[in-house]
């Protein structure tokens, strides 16, 4: 369980990222965070694995306050919390398989990993995960030869190889075209269901949020302005979150199947 208690975040440049956030996210939930750009979605998600550190309050992950974590505990936490990025963040010159194995780094000794001596079962596991997002046959291809959608699926496989309890996805489909976006979101939803992973996704397209979320959290100017299960969400809810009527741009569309 992830719990935010009076969490605020003020950046060194004075920008207020988060304002007094109180949230409880249960195990296995698929939560989508919506809001305009600059509303604090990224700050919220990145606080959970301390890629940014809140300036006030407590964040409890399995009843431990992660804000007080030192370097060592932090690395342990990050092995349990996987992250998917908008720009995939793969090493372009490395093979897909090696990129996926990068997810095992937290579980592998420094020397072993530097020499590339991964246990055979880890390699097998990495290949299985590539299989789950159906790009098994690209294992030895260099990452930069893949399309954007394929690269994002590689990064899903990388996160799975990490064997996390939680997946954080920061705008995972913002760089993809509509049909590919839906494929990637479907993959993400499916694997998180199969492994019963808590998943927290930032999205700014409201139709996507409605299609995939179990629960929606709306942010505006760093504050939670909506929090509720998907069946309570209507177009009106989004207008409240965005603080303006819904426009064509807020919809992704394009789900053919």
């Amino acid at each position: 369980m992830i719990e935010f208690k009076n969490v605020s975040l003020k950046y060194p440049n004075g920008h207020q990222g988060l304002k007094n956030i109180n949230l409880k996210i249960n195990d296995g939930e698929f939560v989508v965070i919506v809001g305009m750009s600059g509303a604090g979605k990224s700050s919220l998600i990145r606080s959970i694995n301390r890629m940014v550190t809140p300036t006030e309050g407590k964040i409890l992950v399995d009843d431990q306050d992660i804000i007080t974590f030192n370097e060592k505990k932090l690395r342990k936490l990050r092995t349990e919390v996987g992250m998917i990025f908008q720009s995939y963040n793969l090493v372009k010159r490395m093979s897909v398989l090696r990129n996926v194995l990068a997810g095992r780094l937290g579980h592998t000794g420094t020397i072993r990993s530097m020499l590339g001596l991964f246990p055979q079962k880890d390699i097998q596991f990495a290949l299985d995960n590539l299989d789950r997002v159906s790009i098994h046959e690209k294992a030895y291809t260099r990452a930069d030869q893949l399309s954007g959608g394929q690269q994002q699926r590689v990064s899903i496989a990388r996160v799975l190889t990490q064997q996390p309890k939680v997946i954080l996805a920061d705008e995972p489909v913002a760089s993809l075209d509509p049909p590919t976006s839906h494929k990637v979101m479907k993959d993400l939803k499916r694997v998180s269901r199969e492994d019963n992973l808590t998943t927290i996704v930032n999205l700014h397209f409201i139709d996507m949020a409605q299609e995939y979320a179990d629960r929606i959290i709306g942010l505006r100017d760093g504050e939670v302005v909506f929090d509720g299960p998907i069946d309570q969400v209507t177009e009106k809810t989004f207008e409240e979150i965005y603080g303006r009527p819904i426009k064509e741009d807020d919809l992704l569309g394009g789900d053919d199947d």
């Binding site: 690395r75 793969l90 997810g103």
Partner: peptide, 16 residues
């Protein structure tokens, strides 16, 4: 910087 961020986020140390 993307890949470095990804490895840091998955718990890799500075050598990794």
């Amino acid at each position: 910087p993307g890949p470095l961020e990804a490895i840091r986020a998955s718990g890799g140390n500075v050598f990794q």
